[in-house]
Each structure stands twice: as structure tokens, then as C-alpha cells.
Amino acid sequence: MSKKREKEPDLKGTLYSVGVLGAFIIITWFMAFYLFIDRF
């Protein structure tokens, strides 16, 4: 009885998507923070 090991899915696309989304959120947050500081 041999166990077949299924190939794990390639998660590089997921990693890149999460990285791009995280960078977008951080950049947006800093832009809003700069606007907030600039007004005072």
C-alpha cells in the first residue's frame, strides 16, 4: 500500500498578490497620515 503524495500548489502568485496589496495599504496609509499632519 503506497501513499501518493499530492503536489502542493504553487503559492508564489499568492505571495506576490499579498505583497502588492500590503504595499498599497501601507502607501495609502502614509499618504493619509501626511495629509493629516500637513493640515495642522
Rank of each mutant, 00 (worst) to 15 (best):
M1H: 04
M1E: 11
S2I: 12
S2L: 11
S2F: 11
S2M: 08
S2W: 08
K3E: 06
K3I: 11
K4F: 12
K4N: 14
R5Q: 12
R5M: 07
R5P: 00
E6M: 11
E6Q: 11
K7L: 07
E8A: 10
E8Q: 07
E8G: 05
E8M: 05
P9R: 08
P9L: 04
P9I: 08
P9C: 03
D10S: 08
D10I: 06
D10A: 11
L11T: 14
K12F: 04
G13E: 02
G13Y: 02
G13D: 03
T14V: 12
T14N: 07
L15E: 09
L15F: 05
L15P: 00
Y16C: 01
Y16V: 10
S17R: 11
S17T: 13
V18R: 07
V18T: 13
V18S: 13
V18L: 13
G19D: 00
G19R: 01
G19C: 01
G19A: 02
G19L: 03
G19K: 01
G19H: 00
G19F: 03
V20N: 01
V20A: 05
V20L: 06
V20E: 00
V20Q: 02
V20C: 02
L21D: 05
L21T: 15
G22A: 14
G22W: 05
A23S: 10
A23Y: 04
A23I: 10
F24M: 09
F24G: 09
F24T: 10
F24P: 00
I25N: 10
I25P: 03
I25L: 15
I25K: 10
I25Q: 11
I25F: 15
I26W: 07
I26A: 13
I26Q: 04
I27Q: 03
I27G: 06
I27N: 06
T28Y: 11
W29F: 15
W29S: 15
F30M: 06
F30H: 00
F30D: 00
F30P: 00
F30C: 02
F30A: 01
M31N: 03
A32H: 07
A32E: 11
F33Y: 09
F33H: 01
Y34Q: 03
Y34T: 07
L35Q: 14
L35H: 12
L35K: 14
F36V: 06
F36Y: 12
F36P: 00
I37F: 02
I37M: 01
D38E: 07
D38R: 03
D38G: 00
R39P: 03
R39S: 10
R39F: 12
F40K: 14
F40L: 12
F40S: 09
F40P: 09
F40Q: 11
F40R: 14
